[in-house]
Design a binder for these strands. Structure first.
Length: 890
RNA sequence: GCCGGAGUGGCGGAACUGGUAGACGCACGGGACUCAAAAUCCCGCGGGGGCGACUCCGUGUGAGUUCGAUUCUCACCUCCGGCACCA
């Protein structure tokens, strides 16, 4: 595996440059050997010095905005990043060579909890930790040779960035798009802090191990549900998005048509409003369930003999982790409130329960329970022995309430439903709501699974919410001229992870902008998804100081033409970004609704796992030559292929790969091993293969460069060429066509690369020493070799840049124009026609292209092998696909 | 449970709109070069049968449509992903 014993891999680009130059002076043969470490740093430096990746908006010039999801600065890039950014870089470089003005930026999603955790664990500060990580990761990305315009780099934790989302938040507040409401958070009493869902382990705090309870806090919400309908509608107008992602978004929005129906409470003024998608089953509603958090629960049970039982139940549910309520094993249970409500359809007295499966966040928090036609209600009814009434009878069947094993949810005719009996239940859905609406007891509504977006985080490392709480004036936004509300970067983190902002007097204490008296700042910070919902717009004018972005720059660059990232963001990040874009449009800041025209979700990077029965997962170096665990000698089992992760010990460190093989080999393997949307299975031997291929290309160029360095690429008539030059020239143009299609239409770089490999193989059959030393040979080979270098350059830019110069070029290969295939060079004059008999392949023959059908039939029947299968059976029919196939049916 | 996606050699993967299944690469086997090895180059490589020309089978399973199906339809099996008491 050690390929470059003489090379010190960690040297910075300038050092490497000097070392390489030194070696060149020593020995000329060094140049003929492919040594990525000698060339990659040099070209990276060159690209940077020449400012080749810098871009400016040029109105009127066709633009292409290529964006990869920016990373969280965890400290190290991993193979997932390498793959994601390599795919993006190929497209960026390709589009640029194809003549577009390409925006290809990179930055950092720099706020978030890991920084706080790391800060506590390592006794450092989130800001310092973050900025150091950014520096380290930037260096890694630069080593991979990505074509980013680094002058547009941004980090969301910078006040110059988040000041504008604070500004936007205030505008949204003024328009009622941001509002405050009580909501529950996971709360650890011991640590006095909120916990994210992933910090709750089996209902206990991850740090202190004490039970987590649900605490009600006033928090800020954004009215994303106002856009639910539009977000859903436009899912069908995003043809450039994967169907899978759109389906996930649609499901997440979860639109349900139904009605709100009002139930009067017996012996009280109160009314309970339910949401139902099945108003047709109203006559079958036999009891009512309220969410434990429903305000009427305490109110109605007060004074009944059930009051204590209800209170105890509500308290017990509050203690349960919210995610636990979604578990499959979670048993439905409830408590009778001691009160009844009246079914508006038939006057039936329905007992009211509070039940753990009723969710306060959905619909109205109240459910009319129809056990005959809803499985959940049926389970509950059987458990508490509540009446079951069948109101929808399926065709040709007679359901009996007492014998009902499972709820019937299909269509049918109405029964037990008064005036509606005999009607189709679908028709009744509308009719019954219309009838009740006349009495003011119902209205048709639409409900969404999507909830408003809670953005308050009781965390330190985030953008402060720019609001002031004044004892006299209430909640007041920070005046715009006082923005940004800067997060104090020198605050000490408190034990247990509690945000220090609340205790930081100089941050909290302020004056009310309205009355001038003492007031307190909001000490919550914003969800980090807020930052990532508009960073793509900021990239268009990252240093702009008069607003979120320069309208002219955004008008030129946006929307993003191609967005690339992991499928794990298929819902939240992408939905929030789409929502934010709609908000910006409402404010007239942008002229479009959808930020990302095309989306590519790349697959995960996976690798085989190894485990020892005694020691669990093993790193490759923990296994000896015999395939046994080095610690106990037990044979290691080869586990399944899984996503690379530290815990599975199947990670590959990009740095080691760069040291050993260089950026081009790393990139090439990532592109070649699988098409981008599929999972990539890592293979050390595959990497070796990629490296071998680059060596072949290198040797190919050096073998010919003496002859073709000063030759012009052939561009004459095909007819002037004899074999094998003619075939080579045709192959060259076929390859241009295939590679262009594979990149342009599908991003299938694996097949693009294999096409170039075929061309390289064909070139390999000619030998620079033996081939006739005429100018025509040199010209055709020049065209082929040049094509190889140009076509590969978006994928493996360093080696191609080097070889491009070796071929005598003086400008960057990035500035070469993408080659065009010559249609006339693709025309073949002889085709292979296959012959089938009854659909089975029986023979083949060569024929001039464009041979007439009748002639092809004659030729097919003349084939001896074919004749033996046809025999003396009568030919019933012959199907001819011109230039391809003849099928004889006997 | 509901909704998606995918099952092709020893392996990763090709096959564009129904028309030569297995491109390209990896692994493996054989050969050349070498004192030897590495590197490189050449040849072979889905399975069964046959000395052989050949032949039969083969794209998860079973049906169907078709002259012809990896590709379209239906059912089933397996794996992966998303949602999961949403009323």
């Amino acid at each position: 595996m050690v390929l470059f014993g003489f090379f010190e891999g960690s040297g910075s680009p300038p050092q490497r440059h000097a070392a390489a130059a030194h070696r060149r002076r020593e020995s000329l043969t060094m140049e003929e050997r492919y040594s990525p470490q000698d060339i990659e740093g040099r070209w990276q430096q060159h690209w940077q010095d020449q400012g080749l990746f810098r871009v400016e908006a040029v109105p009127g010039r066709p633009k292409y905005y290529l964006l990869e999801m920016f990373p969280y600065p965890s400290g190290k890039i991993h193979m997932g990043h390498v793959r994601n950014y390599t795919i993006g870089d190929v497209v960026a470089r390709y589009k640029r060579m194809a003549g577009f003005n390409v925006l290809h930026p990179m930055g950092w999603d720099a706020f978030g909890m890991p920084a706080e955790n790391a800060a506590i664990a390592n006794n450092t500060h989130p800001a310092r930790w973050t900025y150091e990580n950014i520096a380290a990761m930037r260096a890694q990305l630069q080593r991979l040779g990505f074509s980013y315009d680094w002058e547009r780099e941004l980090a969301t934790c910078r006040p110059e960035y988040y000041r504008w989302e604070q500004w936007l938040f205030i505008q949204m507040y003024k328009q009622g798009m941001a509002y405050r409401k009580e909501s529950y958070v996971n709360w650890c009493e011991t640590c006095t802090t909120v916990l994210a869902n992933e910090q709750v382990e089996a209902g206990m705090c991850w740090r202190c191990g004490r039970p987590v309870r649900q605490k009600k806090l006033a928090q800020w919400f954004l009215r994303i549900t106002d856009e639910a309908e539009d977000l859903l509608l436009h899912c069908d107008r995003l043809p450039g998005w994967p169907e899978k992602v759109l389906t996930m978004q649609k499901n997440w929005i979860g639109r349900s048509e139904g009605a709100e129906i009002q139930f009067a409470v017996a012996d009280a003024e109160a009314t309970i409003t339910v949401f139902t998608t099945r108003p047709d089953t109203l006559f079958g509603a036999t009891f009512m369930c309220l969410a434990p958090e429903h305000p009427l629960v305490a109110e109605l049970s007060a004074g009944t003999d059930q009051a204590d039982a209800v209170a105890a139940f509500v308290e017990r549910i509050a203690l349960q982790e919210r995610s636990a309520r979604a578990l499959e094993t979670y048993e439905k249970e409830g408590v009778f409130l001691g009160r009844y409500c009246i079914n508006p359809a038939n006057g039936r007295r329905m007992p009211i329960f509070t039940a753990n499966f009723a969710l306060m966040e959905y619909g109205t928090g109240a459910v009319m329970s129809v056990p005959a036609h809803d499985q959940r209600d049926l389970d509950f009814a059987r458990k508490y022995d509540l009446p079951v009434v069948v109101v929808v009878q399926p065709e040709g069947e007679a359901l009996e309430a007492d014998a009902l094993g499972e709820a019937y949810t299909g269509p049918g005719k109405m029964v037990n439903s008064g005036a509606y009996d005999g009607m189709d239940n679908e028709a009744v859905k509308q009719a019954i709501v219309a009838d009740l609406a006349r009495k003011g007891q119902a209205r048709p509504t639409v409900s969404y699974r999507l909830r408003d977006w809670g953005i308050s985080r009781q965390r330190y490392w985030g953008a402060p919410i720019p609001m002031i709480h004044c004892p006299h004036c209430g909640i007041v936004p920070v005046p715009e001229d006082q923005l940004p509300v800067v997060l104090p970067e020198d605050a000490d983190l408190l034990e247990g992870g509690r945000s220090p902002l609340g205790a930081l007097e100089r941050f909290v204490n302020t004056q009310c902008p309205v009355c001038g008296k003492q007031a307190r700042r909001d000490t919550d910070t914003m969800d980090t998804f807020v930052e990532s919902s508009w960073y793509f717009e900021r990239y268009c004018s990252p240093r702009y100081e008069q607003g979120m972005f320069d309208p002219a720059a955004v008008a030129y660059w946006m929307p993003v033409d191609q967005y690339i990232g992991g499928v794990e963001h298929a819902i939240l990040h992408l939905l929030y970004s789409r929502y934010f874009t709609r908000v910006l449009k409402r404010f007239g800041l942008v002229g479009y609704k959808e930020p990302f025209t095309r989306l590519l979700t790349q697959g995960m990077v996976c690798k085989e796992t190894h485990r020892c029965p005694a020691h669990g997962f093993l790193f490759p170096e923990e296994i000896d030559e015999a395939g046994c665990c080095r610690r106990c000698g037990h044979p290691a089992e080869v586990g399944r292929v899984e996503k690379m992760s530290k815990s599975k010990k199947n990670v590959v460190d990009p740095n080691l790969l760069l040291d050993q093989y260089g950026a081009d080999t790393t990139r090439l393997f990532c592109l070649f091993a699988a098409p981008p949307e599929r999972d990539l299975e890592w293979s050390d031997q595959g990497v070796e293969g990629a490296y071998r291929f680059l060596n072949r290309v290198w040797r190919l160029v050096y073998a010919w460069q003496g002859r073709i360095r000063h030759a012009a690429a052939y561009d004459g008539p095909l007819a002037d060429l004899d074999e094998p030059l003619r075939a080579l020239f045709q192959k060259t143009h076929q390859t241009i066509q295939r590679v262009t299609h594979d990149i342009e239409n599908r991003f299938h770089f694996n097949t693009a690369i294999s096409a170039v490999m075929e061309l390289v193989n064909q070139l390999g059959s000619l030998s620079a020493e033996n081939e006739a030393a005429d100018s025509q040979t040199d010209a055709v080979v020049r065209a082929a070799v040049e094509t190889v270098v140009v076509l590969l350059s978006p994928m493996v830019p360093h080696i191609c840049e080097e070889l491009w110069r070796t071929l005598g070029q003086t400008h960057s290969v990035l500035e070469a124009r993408w080659p065009q295939w010559r249609a006339d060079a693709l025309v073949v004059d002889t085709v292979t026609v296959v012959v089938q008999v009854n659909g089975k392949l029986r023979g083949r023959f060569e024929a001039p292209a464009g041979t007439a059908e009748e002639e092809l039939k004659r030729m097919a029947l003349a084939d001896a092998k074919v004749a033996s299968f046809v025999g003396d059976k009568p030919v019933r029919k012959m199907i001819v696909v011109p230039d391809k196939l003849v099928n004889i049916v006997v």
